[in-house]
Design a protein around this nucleic acid. Structure first.
Lengths: 229, 229, 229, 229
DNA sequence: GATGAATGAGACTTCATTCAT
DNA sequence: AATGAATGAAGTCTCATTCAT
């Protein structure tokens, strides 16, 4: 079984990186717009400009293709998001803002992958999400550390548990991310910000709005806040 | 087209309420566990104990059936959640806690519907979520009002925008809801709470954890907090 | 699983007998001419004049369809062959001749089914032939009985084991059957009978040829033999 | 077309004999176990340890490969079976027994080839069997001669046609061969011999059983029979 | 000559929808 | 109004064959 799996992976990995990415991109776009069950192999092959049979040379089946897309998702997250933020260089406030900006940036760069990844939370994706549950522990730990460090430095107000604050901040991250990808959460955001449909809602505005709420926990002054443009 | 649609709706609405609900429940369960594309009409009919053809007397097609389920979702939300909480009877802290408890309760009562509803946020559900965007304005407004009232009563600490705080609180609600329905968000919760897989994570514990983070904004004393059991 | 299987069978059995047979006939013809793996569902459906999907309402899959054809084969064999010959009315010689004639007749009537049945002996059909192995014991027993009775009546020459003789006779039956269905065995027959390709080889001639060899075992006189026409 | 075919054959025949046989063996094994339609080129190449493309340098297509296997079958039959038995060295009884033993031996040595060959009799193999029909005339002639010689020597009882007896004997050969290769015919054999499934049925026992039935035609005494072990 | 990736027709099967009863 | 058989397009996947290297 594992050998078999490798047989396919090898064929795929021998491809030029460019072509690999084209295929994964095509799959990610399909899965992002129609979901796993709604996406068809034929459609993906056409997007990737490869033959139907070729795909089955690269991946055992649709499921394995999807997992390959998820792996690429994770790789993107790690490369563009986590690795850049393992160290808090200045204040936690800045760190959070940077993190949000980074989320906005990778959502702009890889919307399809991020969408697929975000969709892992859907209840009928459990068969796939189990594979990636490890990551949560990491993510939780990272934010917890960030908060703890900040507390030591006196940046966090008294009387709040590090874990609870971490969770609260991560919730902002998650829903900010969702709002970049899903119309539903975008509208929810608008609703709270009281912004009309006609007015453009840039990610900068969203970030500023989030920072406004988070700043409360921190011993920071308003003037350092992110300027709303 | 609209007449046609009504024709179907009428046939459905002439059914005894009990049978209507049986059909919607069956559909909700299917959609919840397998998603829109993954669910089959045949499966739904079998769950509902009606014939394949009967369903097409009641609904124009799968899409309309799904929308009917979504309508029922909203109805449940309104009936069991929003209507119960239009007035803040005591402090905002209590109100929030009550709201979370209510969420936990209806998740226990109607897990399938809530799951379907929660999935509307999935990016590939946009074709359906548009119909329900109205609700957000309501929801946002309600929480905003709640916060504003609380602020007037001096329950909220200084220097925080009502809307930002409302958003922050609603984010807790949303992700609490998700954690009741999706394994993915459940695990995320555990990760932040640092709870081992073997230990049961009751909704009471989750609520207490959330309340811990929220209390910070409020001029409340710890002793009123939700008792962790 | 069994319920599921019944679900399909029921749908099929509700069909008018005529339509049932049309479908089985179509399948038998396809399987007979191209074998199990070489035959396609589409081809079968076209022969039977039903839609592709209909077939899957009647049978779980190609395998079950094939088994249904085999069942019909057996039914034909039992109805037209075995039931007619449970009693030896006159001499064993006549019985054998009658049996051969009967084989010729059902080969003319149901060539496809007989062909499918005969093919069960192919080594790559073992997955199916196991189901039908019971029949052999019957068949062997029946011929054994026939020979034993004949021996009692003094029709069989001395010094031959009933079982060995039964086997020898059954071999003639089998290869006579094969010669009606397969070009290969037909040619083999011709070769031994020394009949040119241009000359027609009727089943009567084959039977006479076989009877010639069998008569030796029996205390019969030549003049009673089957007349070669 | 013929030139083309030769082009392929030449390429194949230039290979070292060992490699040729490895390829044919691999193909024979595949065809024997899964039949012509059920066998895949990929599988055969893997068994033969050659590349997919190489096979198409040696053979025009799957069909020609199959024919090459059949040619090898015939070659084996001629080399190991026919050529050894062109002369009756002692009595016909011994000759037959030797022939049966030889069949058992080559079935043990080349089961795959023999199986493929035996399957030529399947009705859906007619497209291939035509090519090999020549052989039957030879085979028939050979056995006919054997019987005629034996008759001259007074080994055969009176009143039986040489051709009919030849056919009868050949039938024993054929079905003995089939019983070595197919479960179906093995079971049929057991049924007539009244041997339980648990008891091993060696080829020696089968041969003894067959000899018992054949001996009747011959002016032989029981004591010369094949010893049942 | 050899390789093995690529092709695409076609295989089996499912399923939303229609329709005769 | 209800049934459930029928439809056929479309889905996933396989495989004999071709072709660039």
């Amino acid at each position: 079984m594992l050998e078999e799996l490798n047989e396919f992976l090898n064929t795929f990995q021998k491809l030029p990186r460019e072509k690999q990415l084209k295929i994964l991109d095509a799959a990610a776009e399909a899965f992002a717009s129609k979901g796993y069950y709604g996406s068809g192999i034929k459609d993906i092959c056409e997007r990737a400009n490869i033959s139907n049979g070729a795909l089955y040379k690269y991946f055992l089946n649709k499921e394995e293709l999807f997992i390959a897309v998820l792996d690429r998702c994770q790789q993107i997250m790690v490369e563009y998001l986590y690795e850049k933020h393992t160290k808090i260089e200045s204040s936690i406030l800045n760190a959070i803002e940077e993190y949000l900006k980074e989320i906005a940036e990778i959502c702009g760069k890889f919307p399809a992958y991020l969408t697929v990844y975000a969709n892992l939370g859907s209840p009928n994706m459990e068969m796939f999400s189990e594979r990636f549950s490890e990551r949560f522990k990491e993510s939780g730990k990272y934010i917890y550390e960030m908060v703890r460090e900040a507390k030591k430095r006196g940046e966090v107000i008294e009387g709040i548990d590090e874990r609870a604050l971490g969770f609260l901040i991560d919730n902002q991250f998650i829903l900010f991310l969702y709002s970049m990808l899903s119309d539903y959460h975008e509208k929810r955001f608008r609703s709270f910000m009281v912004i009309e449909d006609e007015v453009e809602l840039t990610s900068e505005k969203k970030i500023a709005f989030i920072m406004d709420s988070i700043r409360v926990f921190l011993n920071n002054k308003k003037e350092e806040s992110y300027p709303v443009t």
